[in-house]
């Protein structure tokens, strides 16, 4: 028996938005520690890793580990039937071929349930290596979304260069060039509005704007986002999900032939 009840159901709706542009289907791996999802996008240059800890749920029960293959388009349709205020419960029997989503209104006067067929996904389990990054940059998530959107107009790819002084985002294309420089915040009233840079060595890498824009679909999950970069390894874009977990996106830098 698996059962996970989330008082703040809107978080699951937001998680869905953060996943569905990159992934058509994915396995939700449930254990007594919580729910994990890890999948490469179709083109195999980005990876999405979601972690929702058991303690973050109002009620969580997982008698035995299970991996639920879900079509994310179908799951998204179902979650659209939940109101933002609803409490959402995900339920499945052991070895079941369906999963049930239950939506309760806050005053319990409306309860809906939707059963969805599970899929058999033949998925590879990838490990994520512990990595020391040369630069980590924390900035407001809305600022990052704005930068990705603005620079996408100039070209298909964007250079992110990080030095002690700050971080520069640049894109070049037919119409010209765009550069956005963010300095490290001197002092801030609210931590989530800060730009904070930790740097071992300067790094400059090029990334496809299309993927960065897809990652920013997670913006509503967190006020700030963290970018981690090192030469020759994938970029990590991390959004924390309140007290419950995180979604991390990995993206290979563009490599010149």
């Amino acid at each position: 028996m698996f059962e996970a009840r989330l008082l703040q159901g809107s978080l699951l709706k937001k998680v869905m938005e953060a996943l569905k542009e990159l992934l058509n289907e994915a396995a939700w791996d449930c254990s007594d520690a919580g729910i994990q999802l890890q999948a490469m996008d179709n083109s195999h240059v980005s990876l999405v890793s979601l972690n929702l800890r058991a303690e973050g749920f109002d009620k969580y029960r997982c008698d035995r580990n299970l991996s639920m293959g879900m079509n994310l388009g179908s799951m998204s349709k179902i979650l659209k039937c939940a109101s933002n205020e609803d409490i959402i419960t995900i339920k499945a029997q052991d070895n079941a071929d369906t999963v049930t989503f239950v939506f309760e209104s806050p005053d319990q006067d409306k309860v809906s349930d939707y059963e969805m067929k599970l899929m058999n996904l033949d998925q590879e389990h990838l490990g994520i290596p512990e990595t020391d990054y040369a630069c980590t940059i924390r900035l407001p998530s809305s600022e990052f979304a704005r930068i990705c959107r603005d620079l996408s107009q100039f070209g298909e790819s964007m250079v992110i260069s990080c030095t002690k002084e700050g971080v520069r985002f640049s894109a070049t294309g037919d119409i010209g060039t765009g550069n956005i420089k963010l300095a490290q915040s001197a002092k801030v009233d609210k931590e989530e509005e800060a730009v904070v840079i930790e740097m071992q060595e300067p790094v400059s890498l090029t990334f496809a704007c299309r993927y960065l824009n897809s990652f920013t679909k997670a913006t509503s999950l967190s006020k700030s986002v963290q970018l981690s970069m090192s030469p020759e390894v994938p970029l990590v874009v991390e959004y924390k999900i309140e007290d419950i977990g995180h979604v991390r996106y990995y993206l290979a830098p563009k490599i010149e032939d």
Binding site: M40, S43, H44, V45, S46, L47, L126, G127, I128, P129, E130, E232, V233, P234, Y250, A252, P253, K254, I255, D257
Partner: peptide, 14 residues
């Protein structure tokens, strides 16, 4: 592509 190879190499390191 070389990007795909980098992803495979990175995630196999774990």
């Amino acid at each position: 592509s070389r990007e795909q190879m980098m992803m495979d190499r990175f995630f196999q390191m774990a």
